[in-house]
Nucleic acid binder design. Sequence first.
DNA 1: ATATGAAGTCAACGCCTGTTGAAGTCAACG
DNA 2: CGTTGACTTCAACAGGCGTTGACTTCATAT
Lengths: 190, 190
Amino acid sequence: MKVSKSERTRRTIVEAARKLFGEKGFDRTTVREIASAAEIDPALVIRYFGSKDQLFAQAAEFRLDLPDVTNVDRSRIGEALVQHYLAVWEGEAGTGGLPILLRSATSSETAAEQMREIFLRQVLPAVRAIKGGRGASRRAALVASQLLGVALCRYILKFPPMVAMPREMLVVEVGRTIQRYATGEDATEG
Amino acid sequence: MKVSKSERTRRTIVEAARKLFGEKGFDRTTVREIASAAEIDPALVIRYFGSKDQLFAQAAEFRLDLPDVTNVDRSRIGEALVQHYLAVWEGEAGTGGLPILLRSATSSETAAEQMREIFLRQVLPAVRAIKGGRGASRRAALVASQLLGVALCRYILKFPPMVAMPREMLVVEVGRTIQRYATGEDATEG
DNA sequence: ATATGAAGTCAACGCCTGTTGAAGTCAACG
DNA sequence: CGTTGACTTCAACAGGCGTTGACTTCATAT
């Protein structure tokens, strides 16, 4: 079963939208720009997705896919999480859901709400799986704060030392923090 | 020497601008809204500040005023920094420079550049003062990532557990992380 | 009282935005 | 060939934006 022509255009539009939303955020991306990048008419964007907001909602959808850490060396859980997280950010190269949301969530309540959803449905369960208990939601929030902070400084604000830092160093340094937040205990040395 | 009338209006405008920029970011705040909040004509805003961008630049200016930690118990430097940082955020209640910049820096390169300036001129020197050495800029970047991440989750994205967490708990938990990043060593217990 | 200059208002410009409905194109099918 | 139906374009609307220049208001100083 081949994909219909309309389905192909839909995807072209979403791809263009992802790229632009991820680079400039919701407000600074216009329907006309998206259409131009997809080499079609602006009206078609609306016809396919109803409105700019609905297109954004669709473009921003994604799964964080935190790795299963139940069979990872317990003292290396933090590193494993950071490793995966950075790979997600660098892999999707501006077309992924996280950059899109982070770029827009500081000024759009809708996007902020989507971030809270992701925290609730994807980060919190993962942290709970590592170590349950009454403090799980707090620990998850601390984990999220450190991970989002790293992405903010490295990929969005582009603080030079943060950009220059090799990935492995981040994995080790930030990994230790995540380890403590997620498990409640410090990582053992080297 | 009394303040002239024009000076008073100038300040009214900046105050209104600070409030709105801090709540909704640069793009979603209009000159007309600012004027309306200041109870004057939109044209006056431009007359006084030249353009919306110049008004923003002025409204976003601020000093982080990181405390002098040279005479603080060395094992409590992290806590002291977090304590001060949270006080800044909660004190300025949406009218301070940091919320304004953070709300806009994800989609405005100008605002992002201002954030890099603050990192360079205010955070980096403070971290260097605690412990110099070749890794100071990296450690400062890690400090910034954690602090900005906390503000993002607590004041902007409003992750419920992060909002609910008492300030003292944040000071202790995040303080430990900042302690390690800033000094290169862990905090001693209790 | 009248002139002066600052302080503030008004209406409008040109531009860009998301969105709409009618018209057009083109391949598939009777 | 002619007609359908999916796919796409075109031109335009209504509204909001930052910004401008001419006008009014008003306190002050001569």
